[in-house]
Deep mutational scan, measured.
Amino acid sequence: NEEPLPEGWEIRYTREGVRYFVDHNTRTTTFKDPRNGKS
């Protein structure tokens, strides 16, 4: 039961299956979860 991502964020996966987060607001990507700060 995960809380929803902030507005404008999306979860994607690399070809290796590593989860990362896309911030469409700033057009950046990060491996850090914007909901809780954990990677």
Rank of each mutant, 00 (worst) to 15 (best):
R15A: 14
E2L: 11
R35W: 05
E16H: 14
S39I: 15
N1S: 14
K32I: 13
G37A: 08
V18K: 12
E3C: 12
K32S: 10
W9E: 00
S39W: 15
S39C: 13
R15D: 13
G8V: 02
F31E: 07
P34F: 01
N1V: 14
L5P: 14
N36Y: 12
R27L: 11
W9P: 00
N25L: 09
F31C: 09
Y20C: 07
T26P: 00
R19T: 09
E3D: 13
N1Q: 14
K32Q: 13
R35L: 03
P34D: 01
D33A: 02
E16S: 13
Y20H: 02
V18T: 11
K38M: 15
R27W: 09
K32F: 07
N1E: 14
S39R: 10
S39P: 15
R35A: 03
G8M: 04
P4N: 09
Y20F: 11
Y13E: 06
V22R: 06
V18I: 14
I11V: 12
N1C: 10
G8N: 08
N25R: 06
T29N: 09
E2A: 11
E7K: 12
E10R: 04
D23M: 03
E2W: 11
G17Y: 04
V18S: 07
E2D: 12
P6A: 06
R35Q: 02
N36C: 15
Y20T: 02
F21G: 00
R15W: 11
K32V: 13
V18N: 08
Y13G: 01
E10F: 06
T29V: 15
P6M: 04
T14S: 09
R27T: 09
N25T: 10
R19K: 12
E2R: 10
E3M: 10
N1Y: 13
R27P: 05
T14F: 02
G8P: 02
W9V: 02
Y13W: 12
V22E: 05
F31R: 07
D23W: 03
Y13T: 07
D23F: 04
L5Y: 04
P6H: 03
E3R: 09
T29Q: 12
N36H: 11
I11M: 14
F21E: 00
F31L: 11
V22W: 12
G17K: 06
R15F: 12
N1M: 13
W9H: 01
K38L: 15
Y13D: 02
F31N: 07
R19E: 08
T30M: 04
Y20M: 05
V22L: 10
K32R: 11
P34H: 00
N25C: 13
R12D: 04
F31D: 08
H24D: 04
L5K: 01
D23S: 04
E3S: 10
P6F: 03
Y20D: 00
I11C: 07
R19N: 04
S39Y: 15
H24I: 08
G17F: 05
V18A: 09
E10I: 06
E10Y: 06
P34S: 00
N36A: 13
V18D: 07
Y20E: 04
F21I: 00
K38D: 15
E3W: 09
V22A: 05
T30I: 04
R35C: 03
Y20A: 01
T14R: 01
F31V: 07
T29W: 15
G37L: 07
D23T: 01
T26F: 05
R27S: 14
T14Q: 02
D23Q: 05
T30N: 03
R35Y: 04
H24T: 11
E2K: 10
R12G: 08
G8F: 05
T30S: 09
G8K: 04
P6Y: 03
T14D: 08
F21Y: 09
R19M: 14
F21V: 00
T28E: 08
R12M: 10
V18Q: 11
R12W: 07
D33H: 03
R27M: 14
K38P: 15
R12P: 00
G37K: 08
E2V: 10
P4H: 08
K32M: 07
E16T: 14
E7H: 13
N25Y: 08
G17D: 04
Y13A: 04
G8W: 04
V22D: 01
G17W: 05
D33M: 01
L5G: 02
F21M: 00
H24Q: 08
D33F: 02
I11L: 11
D33Q: 01
F21L: 01
F21Q: 00
N1P: 14
P4T: 09
T29I: 15
T30L: 03
E2I: 11
E10T: 08
P4Y: 07
W9I: 03
P34L: 01
G37W: 08
N1W: 13
F31S: 08
K38R: 07
G37E: 14
I11W: 04
L5R: 01
F21H: 00
V22I: 14
H24G: 06
E10L: 05
E3G: 13
E7S: 13
R12V: 08
T28H: 09
D23G: 01
K32W: 08
T29K: 14
T28M: 08
V18H: 11
D33W: 01
G37Q: 09
D23V: 01
E2P: 10
R15G: 12
G8Y: 05
E3V: 11
T30D: 03
F21K: 00
T28S: 10
G8E: 03
Y13K: 05
T26Y: 04
N36K: 10
Y13M: 07
L5H: 02
R27D: 14
T26A: 06
N36I: 10
